[in-house]
């Protein structure tokens, strides 16, 4: 900015041609600086894809598609045997349970904030929920490790195990023994982490509902719940799905909150109270000490995670764009 005004001053008040050409140069430079910065976003995406593929190539060549359905993970065997089934299973199961908890609770908070809450309480609660989103994930992980894990292992887990003991299917899902480190503990932490995303997007899309629609529904005698179910949710369905998918993208890739409390076990167990691992937790805990094929295998895991989250997030954005268009017209 300063350089520019010097240029103008130097040109003097009467030298019109010189000033104009200085303007032109400044315009052109600024245009290209901004344009190149904008294009750098595409370069970053390209760089991520290229560097992951280059890094994963040795493992791809070695294992091929069998990487996807091998459960054994033995990096120190000779030759190393690597399979992605355990981490993929853990990633999908923890995210699924997290969404199962976070969707109803997140929507409940959004409904509370938009329809039920007294005006003066709206800002503090909205802010508290958004601050939950701001807490760094390592804090969640640490808290889960020291506080939540022991608590669940001593109370909730034995309770569920006792209730479902002997019941077919459910008995296997909630099988003992209770553990500080388990898929379920990780999923619960994930649920708390993604809750704010679901809530804040739902609140935003709920606000796009024209008041006159809601008023009409209340006017014919609907209760609050009926207004929400028959007017608000149908009107904003696409946006809610977009928000949920965005949260899912977060849950799939979340690293630090999960690494501490999932137990880093590559074995697949039917019980959600057993330790497991996720793709991101496997990378976080093993990458720094890995080399050769092991490292390449971890990068291949990262590539899988990136492809998975890319499609989920792209889907989420497309849904939200559709809603924006609808709200815009």
């Amino acid at each position: 900015m300063a350089v520019q005004s010097d240029v103008i001053d130097d040109a003097g008040p009467y030298d019109r041609a010189k000033a104009l050409s200085a303007f032109k140069l400044g315009d052109l430079t600024f245009y290209w600086i901004t344009r190149l910065s904008a294009i750098s976003v595409l370069l970053i995406l390209g760089g991520i894809i290229v560097s992951l593929i280059v890094g994963a190539f040795p493992a791809m060549k070695e294992y091929g598609f069998s990487f996807l359905w091998t459960q054994r993970w033995a990096p120190s065997a000779d030759p190393p045997v690597l399979g992605a089934l355990g981490p993929m299973y853990g990633t999908l199961v923890t995210s699924f349970i997290a969404m199962l908890i976070a969707i109803p609770v997140g929507l409940g908070i959004a409904i509370f904030l938009t329809e039920l809450c007294p005006q003066w309480l709206r800002r503090p609660i909205g802010m508290a929920v958004e601050l939950l989103a701001g807490i760094p994930s390592i804090i969640y992980g640490m808290w889960g490790f020291f506080v939540l894990g022991p608590f669940l292992a001593n109370t909730f887990q034995p309770f569920m195990i006792r209730i479902f003991d002997g019941v077919p299917v459910l008995g296997a899902i909630f099988a003992g023994p209770p553990s500080y480190l388990s898929l379920f503990n990780a999923a619960l932490i994930l649920a708390i982490m993604v809750l704010p995303f679901i809530t804040s997007i739902s609140v935003d899309v709920f606000k796009t509902v024209p008041p006159v629609l809601k008023e009409a529904a209340y006017g014919v005698g609907c209760t609050t719940w009926e207004v929400v179910r028959s007017v608000v949710i149908p009107y904003t369905r696409v946006g809610i799905i977009g928000g949920v998918m965005l949260a899912l993208g977060r849950a799939l890739g979340e690293t630090m909150a999960v690494t501490f409390i999932i137990g880093n076990s590559f074995r697949i167990s039917s019980s959600i109270f057993a330790p497991g691992t996720t793709i991101s937790a496997a990378i976080a805990s093993e990458f720094a000490e890995s080399d050769g094929l092991h490292q390449s295998g971890l990068i291949l895991l990262g590539l899988l995670l990136f492809v998975l989250t890319f499609f989920v997030l792209a889907g989420a954005r497309l849904m939200l764009l559709r809603l924006e268009k609808k709200a815009g017209k």
Binding site: V41, I44, L45, I48, S51, L52, G55, L246, G249, R250, L252, G253, E254, T255, S280, I283, A284, F287, I299, G302, L305, F306, T309, F310, L313, A314, R317
Partner: peptide, 12 residues
Amino acid sequence: ILLSAPSIIIGL
């Protein structure tokens, strides 16, 4: 998409 991409991927 980059806004919500897993940060561990950025590390890789």
